Amino acid sequence: MKEESEGAILEENKKKAKKSGLKNVGFFLICAVIGMTLGIVSATLVPNMPADVGFYAIAITVFCFFIGYLLHVPIHEAGHLVFGLLTGYEFVSFRVGSLTIYKKDGRYKKANFTFPGTGGQCLMNPPEYNDGKFPSFLYNIGGVAMNLAVSALALLAISETVSMWGNLFLVGFALAGLFTAVVNGMPRKINGFPTDGYNIVTMRKDEVANWAFWIQLRANALLTQGERPKDLPVEPFLLDAQDDLANPMNTSAYMLRYNHYLDQKEFDKAAQVLTEVTPFMDKMMPLHRNEINVEKVFLELIGDNDPAVIQELYNEELIQHVQATHNWMNKKRLAMAYEWFQRRDADKAMESYRELVDMAERYPLQGEADMERMLAEWLKDQIH
């Protein structure tokens, strides 16, 4: 049996290595296609470009393409902001990379908050949900529209009065915007994350997903303003068991129930929520699957504290996720519980406690921060 198990593991590792190799080959092929495309487009669009600078022109255009892609991240999020404001949304937060600007009590504040797998995010408070409808199309398509509009302006700015290098930058910048628009506009998932196009198509087909998307936006706005998870009404999060809880929008809405019970220290009810979503976890986006496992580990630590269960859940994937989201407050709570209940190291547990308290002062979701502080105090009592 042991030999069969080792053989299966070896075969699985070979498959992973082959898949990884194919991904690398695919990446280089994509880069090559992008390079040739940029070269051809540059030669076509840039006026009076000397033939003897062809290679350098391609290299500069490729460089400008990647710089342009970075610039189109805030442009994309600005599109969501502009079209959201035009359709009755209210500003909540705007993030580029880890820099987050959020509004609380009428004042703009700054925070450091990362969201793995995304370059930016614009969250807004939506208008009221009436008769199964709210204006969602323009808010979702706003980023794509802004990328296309700015790219079109860049192409129009190409002229003989601009230097060759300036024109090359405009070409690379415009193509980066087109690339960003296509990637975000296609109805698909990228590494499990739904694109704007995916949201639009799914919400038009599925009324539950439409409702769940609205719930996420409204709950996020309330939490940013300081509303506690326990104060959010739990009824809207009661999706039916037959609903697709692997859908990212449905998962996010459903997990609001978990925090609702966690904030009241009703750990049995919180655990029941995790049990209900478990059958869908294989199809979930990695972020949601890992976050659910984080909470499973936490409940196990403060409950039965079975080392075998914790070891099974706390695998390599989860360790990497915890490291990538180290500035999320629930990771400090997890570390605090792990250091005490598993390792009986009160000093390290209290170190995580102090980090959590310090983080709470500048956390974008103030309602969630208050919940985490409450749970940290409860854990502190267990230690002492």
Rank of each mutant, 00 (worst) to 15 (best):
Y198T: 14
R257L: 06
L170E: 01
Q320K: 12
G177M: 05
F115K: 04
A51F: 08
A17N: 08
E90R: 12
H326S: 12
F298L: 08
L29S: 08
N327S: 02
L262I: 07
L175V: 06
L299V: 03
Y56V: 15
G132C: 06
G68V: 12
E11T: 03
A308D: 14
V62F: 07
A59S: 14
A212D: 14
K230W: 07
F115P: 00
R204K: 13
L262K: 12
T224V: 15
H72I: 04
Q342W: 08
F193D: 00
Y363R: 01
Y261S: 12
M371I: 01
G303V: 03
D306I: 04
G367P: 04
T161M: 12
N330D: 09
I101T: 02
E227N: 08
E295Q: 13
E316G: 04
F83K: 01
A212F: 11
K230Q: 11
G166T: 01
V162T: 07
G54R: 06
P229R: 09
L10T: 14
F91V: 01
P116K: 09
D105S: 05
L170S: 01
A271G: 04
Y363M: 06
P236S: 03
V182Q: 13
P194E: 02
I292F: 06
Q382T: 14
M350H: 05
V73S: 03
I200E: 07
T195F: 09
F83N: 03
G142S: 12
D263S: 14
A43R: 06
M124K: 01
L123Q: 10
D345N: 13
L70Q: 09
Q382W: 14
K109W: 02
E300N: 08
V183I: 06
A335M: 02
A17M: 09
R257G: 11
L148Y: 02
I383A: 02
L256W: 03
D243N: 12
I60K: 10
M1T: 02
Y129E: 15
A360N: 00
G35H: 09
M203Q: 14
A157V: 00
L318I: 13
V309E: 01
K189S: 10
V53C: 07
E3G: 06
R343Y: 09
F267N: 14
L232W: 12
N130Q: 04
I34R: 03
D282H: 05
I34G: 03
K103Q: 10
Q323P: 00
T100E: 05
M249N: 14
F65A: 11
K16R: 15
N305C: 15
P50E: 03
M285I: 06
M1S: 03
L356Q: 04
T202D: 14
G35M: 11
A111I: 00
I30D: 02
G185V: 02
D304A: 14
N327K: 02
F213L: 11
N293A: 13
K283T: 01
L239T: 06
E160K: 09
G303E: 01
Y261G: 14
G84A: 02
A308Q: 13
T202I: 13
K296G: 04
I141D: 00
G185H: 05
G132R: 06
P126A: 07
I292T: 09
I310H: 04
E317H: 00
P50I: 04
Y69H: 06
A149V: 10
A17V: 08
